[in-house]
Design a binder for these strands. Structure first.
Lengths: 110, 110
DNA sequence: CGGACAGATTGATATCCGTCCAACCATCAA
DNA sequence: TTGATGGTTGGACGGATATCAATCTGTCCG
C-alpha cells in the first residue's frame, strides 16, 4: 500500500468531477489547495470544522474523482490538485470553479 | 402560477450549480439546450429515455439551481440556459462544462 | 520495544437523490 | 363540457452520501 488509488487522466469522468466539486466542504478544500498551490496535509490540519474521518472521506472522494493527487509522506499525506490533468481533460473547468469559489478565506494556516 | 420560481442571478450558488451539473441526465439536457441555443421542451420530447416525471424533476433541479429559465407557453414549457446570468456569476464555468460534456450527440430534434 | 501521532477504515445512522408509478392539473380543440 | 395532451406533484423504494464514533495501521521518536 504505497500510493492510494486514483484514476488515470484519461479516466477522469465529468460527472464525478462535478459531483466531487458539488459539496461545500470539498469546495473549500479545493480552494485551499489552490491557494497553497499544491500542497496541504489532509486530516486535522485542514482548518475545517469536521471530524477527522469525514475529512478523510472528502479527500478520498476528491482523489477518486481525479481532482487531487495524494502522496504518502511519512505519517502525513501531501495532497495536490491535479491541475494539469484536469486542464488536459476539461480545459478551463477547474479554473472557472476556482474563480467561482472566490477568494479563499485564507489566513487559515499562515 | 405563471412562471415557475427560479433564483435571481445574484442568488445563484456555486454548490447548487455544481450539483445540478453533476448528473449525467442533467448534463445531457444541458448539452442539448446548448446545442439548440436556447429552447427546448421539457418532459416527453427531450429524447432521453427517462420517465416523464423524472425529466420534470431534472428540469426542476436545473431551474432551481439557476441553470435554466423556464417559460410557460401554453401547455408546453420553453427551457433556456441562463448563459448570461451564469457567465456573470461564474465566468467561464458553463462554457467549460459545455466543452467538457463534449459534442452533443445531436440529431435529437433536427 | 513502546508510546505518540496522522490518517484510514469500518460500522451505524440519518438524510438525500434518482427513478418509477399513479393521480392530478392546466390548456387546447371539438 | 368533454376529452386529449403536456407537465407537475406526491408517494414509494433502492441506493448513495455525509457525518460521527471507535478501532486499526503505519510512521516517527526516544
Amino acid at each position: 500500500m504505497r500510493e492510494p488509488w486514483e484514476p488515470a487522466t484519461a479516466d477522469i469522468e465529468l460527472p464525478q468531477v462535478m459531483h466531487a466539486l458539488a459539496d461545500p466542504a470539498r469546495l473549500e478544500i479545493v480552494a485551499r489547495l489552490a491557494s497553497l498551490d499544491g500542497e496541504s496535509c489532509s486530516g486535522t490540519c485542514a482548518g475545517i470544522d469536521l471530524h477527522k474521518s469525514t475529512l478523510s472521506h472528502h479527500y478520498r472522494v476528491l482523489r477518486e474523482a481525479g481532482v487531487t493527487h495524494t502522496t504518502i509522506e511519512g505519517r502525513s499525506r501531501r495532497v495536490r490538485l491535479r491541475r494539469d490533468d484536469l486542464a488536459a481533460r476539461f480545459p478551463g473547468l477547474l479554473d472557472a470553479v476556482l474563480a467561482a469559489v472566490g477568494p479563499v478565506l485564507a489566513d487559515a494556516g499562515s
